[in-house]
Design a protein around this nucleic acid. Structure first.
Lengths: 342, 342
DNA sequence: CGTGATCACGCAAACCATTGCAACGCGCGC
DNA sequence: GCGCGCGTTGCAATGGTTTGCGTGATCACG
């Protein structure tokens, strides 16, 4: 039923090989025949069978992406970037939700491996060893995870954190809490690293809590802990947690930002529209998705170009309404010190 | 480099056909040889080449899904359901974002058509004619769009709206606003239909506004119009708009729910955690995704089973904190009547 | 012991597009 | 006039899997 290359060949009075060349390497066939072939192909609505093509070329024209949690708008932002950039290059994209489970992640990549030219793994929960092993089975690109010899797009979380610290210090804060996300998440490690370095320079004391689930509920849970410690500012691992913090603080009658400043990471849509609008670090989600695909495709299309396989993307602090001068910033209230001091 | 069926055959001392049968129709091969084959396959880590397989079987083992807007959590919920159900049946899934554009939608489906066994189109913006034409090029299933001879999973928006109306009427509301979503969206038409029917029965006057963009900004814009009309309750097309309404009402100093009740549709995560928590109609997003895949696969796997191609999913009103007795419900404030009365 | 049925397995075709190689025709140069 | 080269095209092999058909073997029954 579907029209094959032979149907086109017959109608254009040429062989199948000529049709193939007319469509892919058109400079190899005479102008007049090429036109005849193209016309025939169009009239018949011919579209090459991707299975047959990939059987012989060894390439599929597909890529895959696996994310840890589809419910987190951060990853759907990435998805948009990935899909747009892939489509632009004629690639279709498989997706799968790893559900924050390392073994599911690995299984998904392996399942995809046979029918894609490569896959981008977003903020993977899998171990270094697992990822290296996966890199052997298909072309791999990471997003927000640094591994020596595997290409990756990386968002500068540490730099974003530095901006946060400078912002809080300038507002007169001396003691703030950091609510950790998952311990093994590269983003969390980076944020913590950036935090510690910047905090030392700014003479800001940091108490750490967690790790927590990087979700709304995690923030709710964490808020009470931070509150008990007497900090004047809370930095959450991400916006989802920050929203949880905001919600809990409101319930407990703590005024934001007058009595407590709150900062998130990601700059989700909801960060801008909640009340009060959340001060947060904008992560380039779509750009990250695009960059990862760029890296992946340049790895696939031969071009083992040097320039190192890691691309860094900048982040920016967006100051909104959840940060303000520290309460009693000229005579700081003594900290009770219930959290771990970094 | 990759291990083929012949490698397995050689190692197991049988022909390739036997290997193929041992893996797919195992009852056709003797137990002892089957074990030998399976062992060899496992040792070699053999995985059939999907391209070669689909070349001959004509099936790909893939399905596609296209959604109107990845940024709307409603659709990512659907995505989760689709992916889970597909994976459970051994299918992989392509996704694409139609960006609320009918022509993009159609192009995406056509592009997928060659490498999928079918696609589910979610709340399509394409016209009936376009969809029928697409149904000719691949196996199609719709989600939240009713078209006579095309299978579809449908969420009972009208029923949800009936529950909303009864709820508001019971609270003493007499005049409420409905903020339309996209005019051509089936869900919007259904909600309006359910609204009009139920409102008549409940003697509730409804004024309609819009259509608006079914997003936060649309709700912000709509809130002022509804406010000017003097209604005591606002029903938004979806939660995103309802959140916009809430935000705008707060800005304008209108107390919710004391001075104004607000209802949304979808039951997004954010509806539960915003302040005050939103009364809304829960739409079965994941279940809808699963049902659509069920329908699609049962259509693909032959089984042209009767029972009609449409599956209805129930919806439930979730009463939270944005609805309350109408202000002055014993002596209703006269309406100024700026909106269109339905 | 012969005949027929049943079972297990191998052979080869088929699916469709791509591509190396060869053939063909033509023009040009020697 | 002959050979060489080039541009254009076709032939045939290739890729990995599935499947219809045929063959050989085993077994039971008459």
């Amino acid at each position: 039923m579907p029209v094959t290359i032979h149907d086109v060949a017959q109608r254009a009075q040429v062989s199948a090989s000529t049709v193939s060349r007319a469509l892919s390497a058109s400079h190899l066939v005479r102008g007049t025949t090429r036109d005849r072939v193209l016309a025939a192909a169009k009239e018949l609505g011919y579209q090459p069978n991707p299975a047959a093509r990939s059987l012989i070329t060894g390439r599929t024209g597909n890529i895959g992406i696996v994310v840890p949690d589809l419910n987190n708008p951060f990853y759907t932002g990435v998805l948009r970037g990935v899909q747009a950039r892939a489509r632009q290059s004629g690639y279709a994209v498989f997706f799968a939700d790893g559900e924050e489970d390392p073994v599911a992640e690995e299984a998904l990549v392996r399942a995809m491996a046979r029918q894609v030219d490569g896959v981008v793994v977003c903020a993977p929960f899998a171990s270094d060893a697992q990822l290296r092993s996966l890199a052997g089975v298909t072309s791999l690109t990471l997003l927000n995870r640094r591994l020596r010899d595997i290409p990756a797009a990386l968002m500068d979380s540490a730099g974003g954190m530095r901006q946060v610290v400078e912002h809080l210090a300038a507002l007169g804060h001396h003691r703030c809490a950091y609510l950790n996300g998952p311990n093994n998440a590269w983003s969390n490690r980076e944020r913590r690293r950036g935090l510690r370095a910047a905090a030392t320079r700014a003479k800001l004391t940091v108490v750490e809590f967690g790790p927590f689930e990087p979700k709304f509920e995690g923030g709710v849970q964490a808020a009470d802990l931070a509150l008990a410690d007497g900090v004047t500012a809370i930095i959450a691992y991400n916006d989802l947690m920050a929203l949880g913090v905001l919600s809990r603080l409101a319930d407990r009658g703590v005024a934001v930002p007058r009595e407590m400043s709150v900062v998130g990471f990601d700059n989700l849509l909801y960060a801008a529209v909640c009340a009060p609008p959340l001060t947060t670090v904008a992560m380039p989600m779509e750009a990250g998705g695009r960059a990862a695909v760029d890296l992946l495709l340049s790895g696939i299309d031969g071009a083992t170009d040097g320039a190192g396989p890691h691309r860094e993307l900048i982040t920016n602090l967006i100051v909104r309404a959840t940060t303000a001068a520290a309460r009693g910033s000229d005579s700081p209230r003594p900290a009770t010190g219930r959290g771990r001091t970094a």
